[in-house]
């Protein structure tokens, strides 16, 4: 067995990695001022670090009032969706080197939800839309099976993509329809409806489809693909929405 080698990565690691970058952050604190302002911070950072590491350096070393949500720091919990250089991303999954650190890195809250302080937005309307699509398995069994329900690997695969959703709101808050009309369910809620509509064990697809047939439902989607681009989990969001639209027409799922 050949010895595994990692020459390239380790050679890079051996050099002094730090560069100076500018974070240009949209600040807002109604306790201080009614207006949001841009503020620049200059810091030394290894370009292989995350945008979240940069925000932490600012909060921990420069300005403790900078406010943002975060938890797991590796793209699983969905806390730190924000607009970085004009695109919705997770701060913990975006490396400095991948977003051109030679220019100021702009960081703003996600759009379409009320900003509460700095990068923190009101997530309640987002979660309300999620709850509205009945995001839980519904079956008509009167007698629960003693063992697990059977499901073929193909049936399980059918909705695999939409089970990956971490409810970070990167998709919904990238959607121009959602920006203009907060009543629209938004991509994330439709993704979570899709997850159940196409689950062979579920028996409430018709109800969910009727909910999404509403004037604020799937038909508002203009297929701009912003949501697919924004999803940090690589979910084909626009495709999922299209499948729900198709199911509404054909009533097959």
């Amino acid at each position: 067995m050949a010895t595994p080698v990692l020459d390239k990565v380790e050679a890079e690691a051996a050099e002094s990695p730090y560069i100076t970058v500018t974070f240009r952050i949209r600040r807002f604190n109604p306790e201080v001022s009614a207006d949001a302002v841009w503020e620049d911070f200059h810091l030394e950072i290894d370009p292989k670090e995350r945008v979240l590491d940069g925000l932490h350096k600012i909060k921990w070393d420069l300005d403790g009032t900078l406010t943002f949500r975060r938890s797991c720091a590796h793209g699983i919990c969905g806390s730190d969706a924000m607009r970085i250089n004009g695109k919705n991303r997770l701060a913990c999954k975006t490396l400095i080197k991948d977003i051109n650190p030679e220019k100021p890195i702009t960081v703003e809250p996600i759009k379409g939800l009320t900003v509460l302080k700095d990068l923190v937005v009101d997530m309640e309307p987002f979660f309300q839309a999620y709850r509205d699509v009945m995001p839980f398995l519904i079956t008509k069994d009167t007698n629960e099976p003693t063992r697990e329900r059977l499901q073929s690997s193909e049936d399980r695969e059918r909705f695999d993509d939409t089970t990956k959703c971490i409810l970070c709101a990167a998709c919904t808050s990238s959607c121009p329809v959602f920006w203009n009309d907060g009543q629209y369910f938004g991509p994330a809620a439709i993704v979570n409806a899709h997850r159940f509509i196409f689950d062979s064990r579920d028996e409430a697809a018709e109800q969910r489809l009727e909910i999404l047939n509403d004037r604020d439902g799937v038909w508002r989607c203009r297929t701009t693909f912003n949501c697919t681009d924004a999803c940090p989990r690589g979910i084909e969001v626009t495709k999922a929405i299209a499948e729900v639209k198709k199911a509404l027409i054909t009533r097959r799922y």
Binding site: E144, E148, S152, S153, R201
Partner: peptide
């Protein structure tokens, strides 16, 4: 405990005969 989660909807990977 596992069977309860499956009944709640958890999408476990499946064997060729459809069990968890």
């Amino acid at each position: 405990s596992v069977l309860d989660l499956e009944k709640m909807g958890l999408p476990f990977n499946r064997t060729p005969n459809g069990t968890i």
